[in-house]
């Protein structure tokens, strides 16, 4: 037994340290894998992929103008992403502190942030490749394009809204005139005398009638 008593603690320490080392290396590897396999923040970056595909296409070689247009599209999408990231940062930090979101989300965010910064630098370099000093103005142009797209989308809604409102308004006036006729004739199937809907034609008479109905 005395023989064992010298080796035993050494063996013990060796086993202990060994297990800890194995565990820590496995854990770190697992963590690294997890970080790499985290779902990206944004979805696939189509303009970027298109641009790079076109850039590397050899036969036939894609003319420069198309490449420039593709680069502008890429810059547009990047501007959108950068704005989202910048706006989200403060709120994300707040939420993280409060515990309303998980740490994973924050990791994904930082990864996305780093990615987009690199992407911007890349685009600037490519822009410079086509024409010197374009790097400065490409993002400004991209910004304007993003804003303009929003304006156009809003403008497109106007016609739709006008149509829905017009449909409702016509229906209401029909209903009102039916009621009026119903009162006059005490007949449930009142025939509609006036045609509904004055699309753009000036009918001052319609106005007073409409006004009268709206008060009932």
């Amino acid at each position: 037994m005395v023989k064992l008593s010298i080796i035993a603690p050494l063996v013990y320490i060796a086993v202990l340290v060994g297990t800890l080392a194995v565990f820590s290396s496995l854990y770190r590897k697992r963590k690294a894998n997890k970080a790499a396999s985290l779902e990206p923040w944004f979805g696939p970056h189509y303009p970027r992929d298109i641009y790079l595909t076109l850039l590397h296409q050899e036969n036939p070689k894609v003319p420069d103008n198309i490449l420039k247009a593709a680069l502008v599209r890429r810059a547009t999408e990047d501007i959108r992403r950068v704005v989202t990231i910048r706006q989200a940062k403060g709120s994300l930090q707040q939420l993280l502190q409060k515990g309303s979101i998980g740490d994973d989300l924050w990791t994904r965010f930082t990864v996305a942030e780093a990615e987009i910064e690199e992407e911007l630098k890349d685009v600037a370099m490519e822009a410079n490749g086509f024409s010197s000093e374009w790097a400065a103005s490409i993002f400004q142009s991209a910004n304007e394009i993003v804003q303009a797209t929003r304006v156009r989308e809003r403008a497109a809604e106007v016609a739709e809204q006008a149509a829905t409102e017009r449909a409702w308004w016509n229906e209401k006036r029909e209903r009102a005139s039916r009621e009026l006729l119903g009162e006059n004739n005490s007949d449930e199937d009142g025939v509609l005398v006036e045609s509904s809907g004055s699309r753009g034609a000036a009918r001052p008479g319609a106005a007073t009638r409409g006004k009268g109905k709206s008060a009932s």
Binding site: L92, K98, S100, I101, G102, D103, D104
Partner: peptide, 21 residues
């Protein structure tokens, strides 16, 4: 405990909601 946020939903859900904001 790490799986749920303060509001009682899973952290993954909170992440999806945040990104959809």
């Amino acid at each position: 405990t790490k799986k749920h946020t303060k509001e009682g939903v899973m952290t993954e859900s909170a992440g999806s909601l945040f990104r959809a904001y």
